[in-house]
Design a protein around this nucleic acid. Sequence first.
RNA 1: GGCCCCUUGGUCAAGCGGUUAAGACGGCGCCCUCUCAAGGCGCAAUCAUGGGUUCGAUUCCCGUAGGGGUCACCA
Length: 547
Amino acid sequence: MDYKKLAELLFPNITKTPEDYEREYPERNLPEGAVVTRIGPSPTGFVHLGNLFNAIIGERLAHQSGGVIFMRIEDTDTKREVPGAVKILIDAMTQFGVFFDEGATVDGDNGSYGPYRQRQRKDIYQCFAKQLVEKGMAYPCFCTEEELEQMREHQKENKQNFGYYGEYAKCRDLTYEQIEEKISSGIPYVLRYKSEGCSENSVKVYDAIKGDLEIQENYIDLVMLKSDGIPTYHFAHVIDDHLMRTTHVIRGEEWLPSLPMHVQMFDAMGWEHPLYCHTAQLMKMDGTSKRKLSKRKDPELGLEYYDSEGYLVETIWNYMLTILNSNYEEWRMANPDAAYTEFKFSLEKMGSAGVLFDLQKLNNISKEMIASKDAEFIYGELLSWAHKYDEEFAQILEANKDFAKGAINVGRNGAKPRYDLVTWKQSREFLSFYFDELFKREDEFPENVDKDTRNTILTKYIEGFDINDDQETWFGKVRAITEELGFAVRPKDYKKNPEMYKGSVVDVSNVIRVATTGRLNSPDLWEINQLFGDEKVRNRIKKAIEK
RNA sequence: GGCCCCUUGGUCAAGCGGUUAAGACGGCGCCCUCUCAAGGCGCAAUCAUGGGUUCGAUUCCCGUAGGGGUCACCA
């Protein structure tokens, strides 16, 4: 077989040579040890946690080493492409704090190793494919979907390994004449790599996360180019990451099974493969077993979820870094105020087992993060969240700017600040009672205080109320009412001798609390009163007194 | 079914041949306390399993089980 002739038949329009591209995309001029990596999302319009997970690893690795991270759009599957997905992708990454040095942008490219959209790289792939055909290492395959389906059925029945290989690789030994005839009669074909591998052999590959891997050699004649001339992931990965001079390939471990194909292809091209970093999958508890997070079942897989719940980007990063690097949490405790960029991220500290996504832990980090911010900042973030998700609340926040900041700050001035706010969505609920527009009685008055007594408490309270009282004086008055009405001033006394009292100061203050805040649980009442001012306090109490 | 990856408390995990097997989240209890949040103190809870190697295995090797992934002209 004259492979040169076959190559010309298959790729008559390809005139550039691999050498041309090697010259066009030279080695990068970067400092020693600089990491070049990328994220390669498909433009499906859905940006999930896994994308962010891997992007964060890449971002840290690249930027802490003086390297480069770029975005390459893997749009080889036209069927799955969603219009506008690139913008969604870039916006999401930007929003979550991942910035790229080069790569695809909304309306083009930025960088000298492009194009960064794989469909635009068709000629490049074909050039290298042509070279492989010339060397007799790739061949056209005319098998139809039905034939392949039958092949799989047959293999299944006979308990053989699935795939296009050996005796099943029917198109492998087609003559030039046969190929020419099929092509001239317009039969579609794919280009397959002619694998010389054998399932008996194994190859060793070092993975920066998993360690030494011993994997079965690839013996399948994988598809390099689909019938439309666009490459499959496998071929595109090899060509792109070589030409774009990627040093680290960070991707999910679902790629592990095809790793043999990739190293085989790199060998075939005569190139060194990049350092592979296969990350563990994000899991979720489902009943009693762990499972991979699923796009359909788990809303928290979509990045959109974290935005709508209202988490700080910083919180997400802190959580991600704690599950990504086992020593991050320790470092964070030692350096509570340091920026995460000061942490030295390392691949060695990454776990290789699947990680269960822990919302409680995330919330804990979020709580602490918000507690460390000042009211001005919190107000700003809360407001921009509200503009996006709850315009009514946004209007209220804007109309009561200083009051809102005061509400945020209740209980946060002392040495032990409150940790009330977890997410913006939750904050909206938590803070709602401060605002008359949103105020409503959410909890019932204490049951052991009858209606008349309750009204008496509230009436006496409002009679003696003076906004200028300091906290001690104010509570002294509550105590006085407590005593006067036959309640125990000290809760312990009531506990010891419940028959001697109607209740305790707890009940009395809870009556006042529910009247003031609509809730049985609230931050310090005196502080709330100070924020409210005389009129508002009196109004709330008056409204609570039932005739 | 083949192949591959993974396995320390409920969760994230430290450990890298000899430890009372860290720490964090969560849970529980106590303290503080007018409620809640926070805080302080404490408690419970882990080496999947069987065989080796070794004076000694959570740690090294092999098997088994369990979990996960993957076997497309999807990535």
